[in-house]
Design a protein around this nucleic acid. Structure first.
Lengths: 350, 350
DNA sequence: CTGTTAGCGCCTTCAA
DNA sequence: TTGAAGGCGCTAACAG
């Protein structure tokens, strides 16, 4: 009596497989099996053990030890292109995250959010079963690490040698939407999203464009240029801006600079809807008419474009579905790369 | 020569502390010390080892093993009130996540996103160093688990016995903003956010309100009721709605129902800005004037309220700062609970 | 169906 | 300064 009440009082420490086995008078394997391999012991014994554990406050084998032993944890890292704070507030990125998390939930896996500007994936690599990589990581070192990494890696909207990916055909989509907007003799400006490594909004001019051939920015840029060529329009190299992230604030700067140009471009190709909407607002509030004076094209198809008037012409992509695809792909034995469907949306902006 | 090139070719397997120690001809402790305790060996030896490891492609001790041994991982779980897909798209929640992630980055910790509707925290408890809990978890079982859990737990916007928390004084804030809006003889409706456990938007009527005394919903409700009492206004119990999550879609349903009421309320107290804005839109598009016919109050102070006209009266809280506070608190040895500042914002909606 | 054992990869006294 | 050894808590063969 005394002893047992003392035991209780003195036990703030948590149980282990071993300690439980001892107090229940069975071997550790039996406890382990009770939790992990129902077929290895009688149903009655199993239930007996499980309920005893419940009573004792033991909720199953330690996951960290389990992960060490088994070599997998059920945690999947989602590597965002940029810092988490930025990505979470981007509607396109957060839709993607939603899609991923939906599938992970079904698979009883957990989501580790990892920033693409972190110094190295090594701080988590041993904890996770692999990586879903959303966009080219801001830190180029991560690209190499992910390429070399021994764990499963799925890339999204860019490619890595030998790795399965899910992506939009950004080049074709950009080409097609631009073709809808462009007329011969248009004076065109491009507002690029992360087409250089610059961290402030500015004209691109001499700067070298970001060098990942398969990056979203590169492909959309090529698509726009393809369309210009097709229409026989020459692009004035001084009318290309770069914004480092898809936000109102950055885009507004570019928009204001465009409005300062000696001759106003009459067509502005933007690499995201957030940028497109921002440019649209500024152009309107400067007193111009859209699309009569200026035509504007966005990209992504975020909800806000539908609520806003004039509506923005854009490429609609289902980011949530993209997330689901990437996550499902993660769990396939032999994943095969996929392109995501998209739709052109012809709005009132051109 | 031959052997070394063969070695290289045959080595797809990754290194361990042991294997590295062997090939370098030192003990495992030395390698471990080189990475973890620079003071335990000569600077020169350390650098020699580190660069050899670099060469070999060994990037330091396995984190999973380290975590098992040391008992901590550098991973912190952020338990969201609801499913991840929903929370990420809520501007208030995502600002909070931003704040948290910002501090975690500085502390070189990683963020595990965990859904409040998960069946149990046990699936991650052994991987993480503790929990930051944003709002009352949808699954009540988690509340108990978190209360009993042996790891560090910080709660946000609700409390758990003996656990440090960061919160807004929701009751006072709700009281104050309601006092600004209310006039004696107002006919008041309340659109509550998760004030019951219902999963669809509907009138509350007989249903019991959510029973966590310290929950946001409960406190805001009390604050509104306090203000009504103060003004001598009686609340018609059939004019209380519950929306299960702060989204346009759900709020719209409540708004439309309110507009169907035989006598239109002239003051609508909403428990979030997303709800408030949605109600505002519906009221306007039904042809009523704001605030002449109907006054509307929101809560949170999200960006969109400033861009929208008429502007919404609301309580502004800095969610990002809240996130930072919670994360900082997590790292303190003896954290002390804190209340977050807030500001009343008097808009054109009342 | 149950128990024994050898590690998973590491850290940390302790002795040399 | 370095090396040897005992676990951290668990799982998967293998015996019994």
């Amino acid at each position: 009596m005394l002893t047992s009440s003392e035991d209780l009082a003195v036990k703030p420490k948590s149980h282990t497989l071993r300690s439980i086995a001892d107090t229940l008078g069975v071997s550790t394997a039996t406890i382990s099996n009770a939790f992990n391999r129902p077929d290895q012991l009688s149903k009655s014994k199993r239930e007996e053990i499980l309920s005893a554990c419940q009573q004792l406050g033991y909720f199953g084998p330690n996951k960290a030890a389990q992960s060490l032993r088994r070599g997998h944890s059920g945690i999947i890292a989602l590597v965002l292109a940029d810092s988490i704070d930025y990505m979470v507030s981007d509607p396109v990125a957060s839709s993607f995250i939603c899609g991923v998390s939906e599938v992970l939930k079904e698979s009883h896996s957990n989501l580790l959010l990892f920033s693409g500007s972190s110094p190295s994936i090594n701080s988590v690599i041993d904890f996770v079963d692999g990586f879903i990589c959303y966009g080219v990581p801001r830190n180029p070192a991560l690209i190499k690490e992910l390429a070399a990494c021994h764990k499963k890696v799925i890339t999204v909207d860019f490619t890595l040698p030998e790795r399965p990916f899910v992506a939009l055909d950004n080049r074709t989509a950009a080409f097609e939407i631009a073709m809808q907007a462009l007329k011969p003799d248009d004076r065109v400006a491009i507002v690029g999203l992360r087409i250089t490594d610059g961290t402030v909004t500015s004209k691109v001019m001499g700067e070298t464009l970001i060098d990942i051939d398969t990056s979203v920015s590169h492909l959309r840029y090529c698509g726009y240029v393809d369309a210009l060529a097709q229409q026989g329009i020459s692009l004035n190299p001084s009318l290309i801006w770069n914004v480092p992230e898809s936000s109102q604030a950055h885009a507004k700067i570019a928009a204001l600079e465009i409005l300062q140009e000696p001759t106003l471009p009459n067509t502005i190709l933007c690499m995201s809807d957030l940028i497109g909407l921002s440019v649209l607002r500024e152009v309107l509030s400067a007193g111009y008419n859209v699309p009569e004076d200026v035509k504007i094209v966005g990209f992504d198809g975020i909800d806000e474009t539908k609520r806003h008037h004039p509506t923005l012409s854009t490429v609609f992509q289902n980011s949530e579905e993209k997330g689901r695809l990437a996550a499902k792909m993660f769990f396939e034995k032999t994943p095969v790369s996929q392109y995501l469907e998209y739709q052109l949306f012809l709005g009132e902006s051109c």
